[in-house]
Amino acid sequence: MAFLQVNYYSQVLGMDRVMNVILPELSDHNPNWTAADLKDIPVLYLLHGMSGDQAVWSRRTHIERLVRQTPIAVVMPSTDLAWYTNTQYGMNYFDALFDELPQKIGTLFPQISKKRAKNFVAGLSMGGYGAFKMAFSGQQFSYAASLSGALIGDPNFPGRDSWQNNAYWQGIFGELKKFTGSENDIIALAKKQSAIKQPLPKLYAWIGEQDFLFDNNQQTIPQIESLGYDVTFETSPGEHDWYYWDQKIERILDWLPINYQPEKRLS
């Protein structure tokens, strides 16, 4: 596997950006791989939470080791603190990540698949929200996963006031009284997508039973499932913490249709 830090320019945001990319390559660690295995490679877009950036998944989990023997690319971008959203202050982070970034990936890494069946997205906390939001916003992703996701369908979502003040949230989402039914309401997005009668993404969600977002997930997931989505929803003892996310990212890799091969060697 190659681990790349990619500095690129975003036309949408009008600024330089950074993403980390794990990219399969021929090496002694994978003697059975051929050049054909590294064409049309599946890709997982892995999204960070509020306190993270493009490096946090590689710093706090074993993601690089976990995919070492599985031919899948992992793209880790950053949305700063913008909630994978076109903000009210004119920074269109959602467009930059949903539309522009896959185009950039296609240009820089032509071996990565553009097929919906091989494009996946996952994230934790704010990134869980972002993953579902992206999956519900078009036909780009066939699988989406949320770990401890802030699955917002209500302006009074858990943790709002403790995370940031009201001015911050209005800068991201606009007037909170208008949030429900908006382009940022994932329940509204799921309803809109399901009504179009196009293929729906398969979904996975995990939430710890001691997580402050537990009730949020318990309320939101059944609403999504009732719309016809194939949802695998799991709970177990756990808090809002990297200790659990490091374990559950392997569960996501095993759930994805990629013939996941866990790392067995220490070398």
Score class of each variant (00 low, 15 high):
103 Q>G: 12
165 N>C: 10
96 A>F: 09
166 N>Y: 12
195 A>C: 09
120 F>P: 04
11 Q>V: 14
113 S>E: 02
136 F>H: 06
90 G>Y: 05
18 V>T: 15
234 E>R: 14
17 R>L: 09
153 G>C: 11
2 A>M: 15
82 A>S: 14
199 P>F: 01
213 L>M: 06
88 Q>T: 15
35 A>W: 15
106 G>A: 12
224 I>E: 11
121 V>Q: 02
232 T>P: 10
29 H>N: 14
266 L>N: 11
32 N>Q: 13
158 P>Y: 14
24 P>R: 15
148 S>V: 10
206 W>A: 00
207 I>G: 13
54 Q>V: 13
253 L>S: 03
247 Q>E: 06
213 L>I: 07
166 N>W: 10
236 S>Y: 05
236 S>W: 03
211 D>W: 09
151 L>F: 07
7 N>H: 13
127 G>F: 13
78 S>H: 08
214 F>P: 05
115 K>L: 14
65 R>F: 02
232 T>R: 09
65 R>A: 01
75 V>D: 02
207 I>F: 11
250 E>F: 00
136 F>Y: 09
104 K>M: 07
50 M>C: 10
245 W>Q: 04
124 L>P: 00
210 Q>N: 14
235 T>D: 03
205 A>W: 15
126 M>I: 08
137 S>T: 02
107 T>N: 07
18 V>M: 11
11 Q>D: 12
201 P>S: 00
116 R>F: 08
260 Y>E: 00
119 N>L: 07
184 N>L: 10
201 P>E: 00
231 V>D: 04
222 P>S: 03
120 F>C: 02
30 N>V: 05
5 Q>D: 13
218 Q>F: 07
52 G>W: 11
169 W>D: 01
31 P>I: 04
122 A>G: 04
160 R>I: 05
94 F>Y: 09
94 F>R: 07
157 F>P: 00
38 L>D: 04
243 Y>N: 11
226 S>I: 08
136 F>C: 05
115 K>I: 11
34 T>H: 07
99 D>W: 13
258 I>A: 01
19 M>E: 04
262 P>Q: 00
257 P>F: 01
122 A>V: 01
13 L>N: 10
237 P>E: 10
78 S>G: 10
202 K>C: 08
200 L>H: 11
261 Q>K: 02
105 I>D: 03
223 Q>G: 04
238 G>N: 04
145 A>E: 02
168 Y>R: 07
111 Q>R: 12
74 V>L: 05
56 V>Q: 11
84 Y>T: 03
81 L>M: 14
182 S>H: 06
125 S>C: 04
20 N>I: 13
243 Y>A: 10
157 F>S: 02
220 T>D: 06
31 P>C: 04
87 T>M: 03
149 G>P: 00
82 A>W: 15
86 N>P: 12
86 N>R: 08
146 S>Q: 03
160 R>M: 08
9 Y>R: 14
74 V>I: 07
158 P>E: 11
70 T>C: 00
217 N>K: 14
69 Q>G: 12
138 G>F: 00
7 N>Q: 12
244 Y>A: 05
24 P>H: 15
